[in-house]
Design a protein around this nucleic acid. Sequence first.
DNA 1: GCTCACTTGTGAAAAGCTTCACAATATTAG
DNA 2: CTAATATTGTGAAGCTTTTCACAAGTGAGC
Lengths: 211, 211
Amino acid sequence: MSRRVSESTIRRLSYYLRALEALEGSGAATVSSEELAERGGTTAAQVRKDLSQFGSFGKRGLGYAVKELECTLRRILGLHVRWRVALVGAGRIGSALFEYPNFAQRGFDCVAVLDADPAKVGSRWGPILIRPVSELERTVRELEADLVILAVPPEAAQDLAERAVGAGARGILNFAAVQLRVPRGIPVKDVNLVFEMEALSFAITQADSHA
Amino acid sequence: MSRRVSESTIRRLSYYLRALEALEGSGAATVSSEELAERGGTTAAQVRKDLSQFGSFGKRGLGYAVKELECTLRRILGLHVRWRVALVGAGRIGSALFEYPNFAQRGFDCVAVLDADPAKVGSRWGPILIRPVSELERTVRELEADLVILAVPPEAAQDLAERAVGAGARGILNFAAVQLRVPRGIPVKDVNLVFEMEALSFAITQADSHA
DNA sequence: GCTCACTTGTGAAAAGCTTCACAATATTAG
DNA sequence: CTAATATTGTGAAGCTTTTCACAAGTGAGC
Ligand SMILES: NC(=O)c1ccc[n+]([C@@H]2O[C@H](COP(=O)([O-])OP(=O)(O)OC[C@H]3O[C@@H](n4cnc5c(N)ncnc54)[C@H](O)[C@@H]3O)[C@@H](O)[C@H]2O)c1
Ligand SMILES: NC(=O)c1ccc[n+]([C@@H]2O[C@H](COP(=O)([O-])OP(=O)(O)OC[C@H]3O[C@@H](n4cnc5c(N)ncnc54)[C@H](O)[C@@H]3O)[C@@H](O)[C@H]2O)c1
């Protein structure tokens, strides 16, 4: 059943899951690939291909059972368990993320916050005490953090990534604008908002020069 | 010269530009596709293919002139002009973005901040006065904002996107977890951090079930 | 000038992803 | 039970992106 699944498929699964949640709220019991496609911004054929990589979840003639597919998608995405997250960098982005209620709602629990700034270390964010980043390894190990969010300056990111992985972290969400080198098998997701803005800049410029 | 350029190519161009800036700082005058690839997390052949879509910028046997290529990439990405940005939603993400110095450094100037909350409207963020979102159209039009950042709740995003585009906005960076429908030719970039976390969750779960 | 080491630019091959098209299957109505 | 209608699951086709491989160009050393 499982060969390599593409990044794009995974992103779409997340969209489908959102769509299903919305549908469940509105009381629908089943949904067609057509409708799921509409909400996920893709095509019906793509929806079916995506899902078929993991099994056969629909009924011909009828569509997919909303609740059941929702549950299946959660399981596929690994969202049937809760994830333990350590946040490194208690700055502007770090604090926005920390206060973002969707993470916890989605199964991602922030179990620790770390920072290098002595002025921040020791202060409290709600129930969480900000720890010195020198305790990164111990924190990841003892609190069994699965995921690490790096919201630190670019020059600190590589070192922190290595240390976190060495201590047992299994995946990284990286806000620093550097290409992290990590051991094979450790997934890294980069978020770079400037790159997104640059892509907009390119698209507009391109359109202009063509007009 | 210009057929359709892929999203992935554009993202890599951004990486190359960062790499070139770093190289310029370290005094190097030329750089090979090999070295650029290393820093951009890709392969030498990919670098050359990416660049060749826009012209021939290298010298065989030597590589690329750092300063020159940097300048060329800026022009390709449309970063030789400054972009005027309106930020809609002065919440947690909005304020982190507003204070992020890299945007301005990169040519993206925040010319207005808008919010629906009467408690926020009228207060100042540095030199900027927060405006009521009812003035969105007028603001975009009068301040000639090119780009709009939507850092608002999902249910407000579609309406605001339509209004912004109607008033002349040419691109959107969207933090709300909805698939925006906009007129053809208006680029939209979605940032969804929960989706990134879910992709990590999937990758780890997948790896486990395979082990 | 000639050779050598190096590196680009690019057509062609390979790999990956999306769309198409339709047989297979389920439900409903008569 | 049969016909009509709906919708999935999937091989094959089509398209896009990446990788390969190498001719062609460049500068340095002698
Ligand atoms: N603010 C934004 O909107 C934004 C947007 C995109 C990307 N980013 C990126 O995210 C990262 C963080 O940005 P920010 O705006 O939150 O910066 P910030 O300066 O507000 O916060 C960075 C935090 O990291 C801490 N820190 C520095 N070195 C550290 C280390 N070695 N170990 C642990 N903590 C350390 C600092 O004390 C600070 O609290 C940067 O790489 C930035 O480029 C930020
Ligand atoms: N905080 C995060 O880390 C984070 C992460 C990922 C995504 N997001 C998404 O980004 C968006 C903003 O998140 P946030 O955490 O900053 O939320 P927030 O509640 O802190 O801020 C939202 C702001 O939007 C304003 N607003 C509400 N309706 C509006 C309208 N119609 N017009 C203009 N302004 C309006 C509110 O007054 C508030 O100031 C949300 O869609 C959220 O899901 C946030």
